[in-house]
Design a protein around this nucleic acid. Sequence first.
RNA 1: GCCCCCAUCGACUAGCGGCCCAGGUCGCCACCCUUUCAAGGUGGUAGCGCGGGUUCGAAUCCCGCUGGGGGCACCA
Length: 422
Amino acid sequence: MTAPVRVRMAPSPTGFLHIGNVRTALFNWLFARHHGGEFRLRIENTDTSREVAEATEQIQESLRWLGLDWDGEVTFQLDRIAECAELARRLVEEDKAYEDEGAIRFRMPDEGVTAWEDAVRGPIEFPNEKLEDLVLVRSDGRPTYNFASPMEDVWDGITHVIRGEDHISNTPKQINLIRAVGGELPVYAHVSFVLGADGKSLSKRHGSVTVDDFRHEGYYAPALVNFLALLGWSYDDKTTIMSRDELVERFDLGRVVPSPATFDYQKLDWMNGVYLRALREGEYADELVRYLRETGHDWDEQLVRRAVPIVQEKIERFGQFPDFAGFLFRDVHPDPAALDGRVAIVAAARDELQEVEPFAAPEIESALRALAARLELSPRKAFEPIRIAVTGSKVSPGLFESLELLGKEETLRRLSAVVATV
RNA sequence: GCCCCCAUCGACUAGCGGCCCAGGUCGCCACCCUUUCAAGGUGGUAGCGCGGGUUCGAAUCCCGCUGGGGGCACCA
């Protein structure tokens, strides 16, 4: 039996989960699940304020939403202050560290190089003369990140440290520290950053950045996971859409590329659309209903569910639903300019639809097509003012189905309202 | 300033010396379908940063340059 794999995600509890960190977390998770190992969640906190508690809960909620489950209890760096202090004392006794104005510093080697085989970048080495003696414990007694983090990795039996490339220059320091305490070195894998279209690191001005942002925009978690997995990793030269299970089965750290990736919102939108269209109607409805509740749209659930067939093929994010199908739930205010005086058509449609029974899509369609023919207008020309009058927009779900859902009474009311105002 | 990382179409990537006058996906363009918008179908556009090597042969290996990025805290 090979040694079990154990990885961790170690966010600092400073706020919402950034999508770049999520991508790193996802790689950790995929790696762990692929190898049947463990994925731990460790909070790198330095205090116990209320903000920390909230951020910690926020991080967990985001991971849950994405379906990235972790093993064991969440651990906190702060809980290991005592162990760190004791270890630092031992290092001083062994003359591997020394006191410096109340703080404890570790003696870094002065000659040679510190090197490791990075699982995504290959060999990396740093000249030791560039390594400064590292503060392990501050004068107030708290351990520093570069001391606590590698020690926790050792104590937790972390086998693979998969983290952002900003930690590359910390690695030689941490390696020397682990060697000094006689700990087992993990395998290091430094993944690149996720950038915005301007080549700068992804921030709010680029669009959504936190998991919460994407959730509120109406992205579907499995699609986001699929998209993120492909940011810096690929299975082969042609596979794009992969289920969670397929990702787990196929993920391979060796196929993670070292170069930074630009986050392409358009491709995410496309992929989200692919996932949403593939959902079974009932499943789509459940997700949509949940999304609308979360975003504060208190709309009739039955009507939302009935609207699914006319929107599923049309929108790529749940966030587009309120604009696209909102006319079913609230009154509209057609723009007279958009109508451009074509009230006669609206009036004719009202008269025509008055007679339609039952008020169902097929009957509505034949009535309106007959009307268009009578007016000697192309369906395109004839339907536009009707669409505007009823949905308030030039863009909407299929007209006939929309009218059926809206109901005869409300449809006639909206058509009449337009006729009356002009 | 010093140290480190990175470099294939606009974007994500395949490629790990000959299968590549570079393949897939998104985007974009055109056409088809069509009640709008989508979806779908067909076709197309576009790339190995530059310069030296190594080799019979280089997108692939080596060196330099250039251009990006990161790090040099008693932050994480």
